[in-house]
Simulated scan of single mutants.
Amino acid sequence: MSNNKPMPAPTEISAPFWEGLKAERLLIQQCNACQHWVFYPRRHCPSCLAHDLSWREVSGNAKLYSFTVTRIATLPDFADEMPQKLAVVELDEGVRINTNLVGLEEDEIRIGMRLQPVFAEVDDKGSRLLRFTGMDSDVDSLKRLPTLAEPEAESTESTPPARRIALDDEAALQSLVSEEFSAWSNQIVVDQALINAFAELSGDDYWIHTDPERARKESPFGGTIAHGALVQVLQSRLKVPLGFEITGFTNMVNYGSDRLRFPAPVSAGSRIHSRARVKSVERVKSGTQLTLELNIHVVGNERPSVINELVILYM
């Protein structure tokens, strides 16, 4: 989950609602003059116009009034949550709230179904947002903040052994050249903390990388993005299943890159993975040169964020 998503800004009027969510309590206003329940937070009762409202705790039990499923993120930061189930729910007190449904498959959702609140933790500061789920769902599991760098579960399927190719086997080396890419690597999250660490190390602290508030207002990407060089460097943490192993050499060096491009941004909080293909193999004066095209993508994005034609020299 991205830690760079826009968050609500409590005002003097709405602050009790947001503080209540932090304490896992749903507080809404009620008019002391006519007993009308009020949401969204405001200074006066929309029914009788009295300026006499009090905050009261309610159960949060509700029914689904309407919903829609969205599959394209409005901001890049939300790509990890697609598809989103956006909903309007009606509390038992009669007020309606815009929210997200969680813990439900699309075929489980029905207009009028009974719902319960989820006080979902969304950052490590204890901030929570109000979401809803079915009455039979495990609410506690939906409250917890997803770990940004959860390790990938190891596959239970056996991995076939890598094809071993001798450096002097010219025909076998040339057979590696292909237009087809390998399977995907493991995934890692490029969060704001990682971007900030790279900015400090590299000295590149330009605001589009390090200032989330300004980036949300001024950046064409709707938030901060990772340095292209950072995403490229992270390739070493992405284990691409190439399916072959070169043998029979004395030394191997990363000789450089024929081409290095950054076609698409990586927004803070994005999850990335990589795949590769052998573009060419040729004999040169100093040894055998293999060009490996590495493409790093944000998970779910067809357009790569990094294209690196890495030249490896075997001697």
Score class of each variant (00 low, 15 high):
Val281Asp: 00
Leu53Asn: 12
His51Ala: 13
Arg271Thr: 14
Leu49Lys: 10
Glu106Leu: 03
Ser175Val: 06
Asp205Glu: 09
Val190His: 09
Val240Arg: 06
Arg43Ser: 15
Gln289Val: 06
Gln84Asp: 03
Gln235Trp: 09
Gln187Phe: 06
Thr133Gln: 05
Asp136Cys: 02
Leu26Thr: 11
Gly228Trp: 13
Arg42Asp: 08
Arg261Thr: 15
Thr247Cys: 09
Ile246Val: 07
Gln235Lys: 14
Ala153Trp: 10
Pro220Met: 04
Glu302Asp: 14
Arg71Ser: 11
Leu130Arg: 01
Lys143Ala: 10
Asp168Ile: 06
Ala50Leu: 05
Glu170Arg: 14
Gln289Asn: 12
Leu292Lys: 11
Asp123Leu: 02
Leu230Arg: 07
Ile111Asn: 01
Gly223Gln: 07
Val190Ala: 07
Leu21Ser: 05
Ala79Gln: 10
Tyr65Asn: 05
Ala229Gly: 09
Ala197Leu: 13
Leu290Arg: 10
Asn3Trp: 03
Trp37Glu: 09
Gln289Tyr: 07
Asn308Cys: 12
Phe119Glu: 02
Thr247Tyr: 08
Asp140Gln: 13
Leu130Lys: 01
Pro41Phe: 05
Leu64Cys: 00
Arg214Val: 09
Pro46Glu: 15
Asn254Met: 13
Ile296Glu: 11
Thr11Ser: 14
Arg216Val: 04
Thr159Leu: 10
His209Thr: 05
Glu150Gly: 14
Gly248Val: 02
Thr247Asn: 10
Tyr65Arg: 06
Phe244Leu: 04
Arg283Lys: 13
Thr159Asp: 12
Val58His: 04
Thr99Ala: 11
Gln35Ile: 10
Ala79Tyr: 03
Val278Glu: 03
Pro41Tyr: 08
Ser158Cys: 08
Gly112Gln: 12
Leu145Pro: 00
Met113Asn: 00
